[in-house]
């Protein structure tokens, strides 16, 4: 369960104070497949970064399973992210010198899981995203869609409470996007992992079971479908 209370984020841009988020409060329940939508500059990515502990709010709190991550010291926050939050980035952001298998395995190594557990989970996830025959390929040997599927497998590898995906289909063609969304939807059901997207993509919006719309740093609608 993610509970966001009265989040406010203010940036200083030269002499001007920019209100990126204004008093946002919301709750995201386990297993949701939520899309945060809105025009560019509306505050989607800022909200996602604050939920993921990558950015701190000027005011307010973010509780993830009773832990207020805005109060955690930096090192504990990094450790919290390792165990509780999965990230999928717009430009994949895989480690270029590692193979698909090593990229997926990486977080479990940081979690100090044993080799057998790592291997089993890595192969299971790569199979789930349809890349069981690409495990020894490096990112530069794979297409954008394949790289993003590895990123999904990596995000799930650490068994996080939820996954934050910042415009995951923005760099993909329609076929790859459709494929990726189907995979994420299936994993959402099978792994019972919460997915939170920021997106412009109507296909993502169509698949989401909850849509939160933000404009000028405020939630203007929150609907379930």
């Amino acid at each position: 369960m993610i509970t966001i209370k009265n989040i406010r984020k203010t940036y200083q841009s030269g002499d001007i104070e920019v209100q990126a988020l204004q008093d946002i409060s919301l709750t995201i329940k386990p297993g949701e497949f939520t899309a945060i939508v809105g025009p560019s500059g509306s505050g989607k990515t800022t909200l996602l970064n604050i939920i993921g502990g990558l950015d701190s709010p000027t005011k307010g709190s973010v509780k993830i399973n009773e832990t207020d991550i805005t109060q955690l010291p930096e090192n504990e926050l990094i450790d919290f992210r390792l165990h509780h939050i999965g990230f999928i980035f717009q430009s994949y952001n895989l480690i270029p010198v590692l193979t698909a298998k090593e990229n997926v395995e990486f977080l479990m190594l940081l979690q100090k899981k044993n080799e057998q557990a790592r291997n089993e989970r890595t192969l299971k996830l790569l199979k789930a995203v349809g890349l069981e025959d690409q495990i020894h390929k490096r990112p530069n040997e794979m297409s954008g869609g394949q790289q993003q599927r590895v990123a999904v497998a990596r995000a799930l590898a650490s068994k996080p409470s939820f996954i934050l995906a910042d415009e995951p289909t923005a760099n993909l063609d329609s076929k790859s996007s459709e494929n990726l969304l189907n995979i994420m939807q299936r994993l959402n059901r099978e792994e019972k992992t919460t997915f939170i997207f920021s997106t412009h993509d109507q296909r993502v919006i169509d698949k989401a079971n909850r849509i939160i719309t933000i404009e000028d740093g405020k939630i203007i609608s929150d609907t379930s479908q």
Binding site: G52, L54, E74, N75, I78, D79, R81, L82, H83, I85, G86, F87, F89, N93, I95, L107, L110, R154, S158
Partner: peptide, 9 residues
């Protein structure tokens, strides 16, 4: 990205 996904400093 490494810091984001949980690789400590």
């Amino acid at each position: 990205m490494l810091l984001s996904i949980g690789m400590n400093k």
